[in-house]
């Protein structure tokens, strides 16, 4: 209770210092927030592209409907497979006509439908990588009722590589931004504590335990970090709205990310306070 009272009193006594500290924290976390929005949208775009990764198993012309159902069942039992959709020869021709309108003359002159029936195999989200796609395609190809299999191997490889490069890049940049934010927060909190180093020494000289001295400062650092985090969330959302309305539509980051950023701000503030106070506690 004393710690909370003291922390609030300290903020009231030097509101400008608190505002400046919180603003520094906010600016540091704002950069992380903008990076978060960019990363999230890249992730979303790649996920949307990945959803198109599928295996198409072309069924032999002489296969009966029961055999197609049996093949569908075999594929659905695979752990990599999320759904299987049967595309009849007629549906295939209809789709081809719709998507390839420039060849309408060619299609209308056909006496016989040359397109085979097929099973479009949709994969589970965790199995849209080259290995899983190749395994499902291989299993389908070996089935006696399957004529051929298509899955765009090169395209899947490139997409997977892009995903890996993206993951590594965002991890490195994310860590770098977070580190810079942590250092800025540490500096902001240290400046605030430096201004009160005499207070820490006086506390020790009148018989306060280290824990007693530390608690209000930790709480103050935590509150400053939280305030900075919330301010950063507001700034990031404002920047998002500007881009969304004036440039191009974007997705807003999930609430868990925002909560994580605010809590990280508080945690950095608390940690920085602990380090800074510890230094001054050693002086008397």
């Amino acid at each position: 209770m004393y710690a909370l009272r003291e922390a609030i009193a300290a903020i009231r006594r030097a509101p400008l210092l608190t505002i400046l500290s919180a603003a520094m924290v906010a600016l540091a976390l704002f950069v992380v927030g903008v990076f978060g929005v960019v990363t999230y949208n890249l992730h979303q775009a790649l996920t949307q592209i990945e959803e198109r990764v599928e295996v198409v198993a072309y069924v032999r012309d002489d296969v009966l409907e029961d055999q197609v159902r049996e093949l569908e069942g075999v594929l659905l039992e695979l752990e990599e497979v999320r759904a299987v959709r049967f595309v009849s020869r007629e549906d295939a021709l209809l789709t081809a006509r719709e998507t390839l309108g420039e060849f309408e003359d060619l299609f209308s002159g056909l006496q016989v439908n040359p397109l085979p029936a097929s099973l479009e195999v949709e994969l589970q989200p965790g199995f849209r990588n080259p290995e899983a796609v190749a395994r499902v395609a291989g299993l389908a190809r070996r089935h006696p009722n399957v004529e051929d299999v298509a899955y765009g191997g090169d395209w899947v490889d490139r997409l997977h590589l892009l995903r890996q490069v993206g993951a590594i890049g965002t991890a490195i940049l994310g860590m770098a931004f977070s580190l810079v934010a942590a250092l800025i927060i540490a500096t902001a909190v240290r400046i605030a504590i430096f201004a009160r180093r005499d207070e820490i020494q006086v506390m020790r000289l009148v018989g306060a335990t280290n824990g007693f001295i530390r608690r209000p400062f930790l709480l103050e650092g935590f509150l400053t970090g939280i305030a900075g985090g919330l301010l950063a969330a507001g700034l990031t959302y404002s920047a998002y709205l500007v881009v969304y309305r004036l440039v191009f539509p974007l997705d807003w980051i999930p609430m868990e990310w925002i909560a994580g950023g605010v809590i990280a701000g508080g945690a950095f503030g608390l940690l920085a306070s602990a380090v800074a106070v510890r230094r001054y506690l050693r002086e008397v």
Binding site: R13, A14, D198, E199, Q201, V202, R204, L205, V206, G207, A208, T209, N210, R282
Partner: peptide, 24 residues
């Protein structure tokens, strides 16, 4: 130890030459 020194300081009152009061 430095960690225990508070026990002594609660038994000793110190009037500092430069006062060492908490400003504000």
């Amino acid at each position: 130890s430095d960690r225990e020194v508070w026990k002594l300081r609660r038994r000793v009152g110190y009037v500092f030459q430069e006062f060492r009061l908490l400003p504000g």
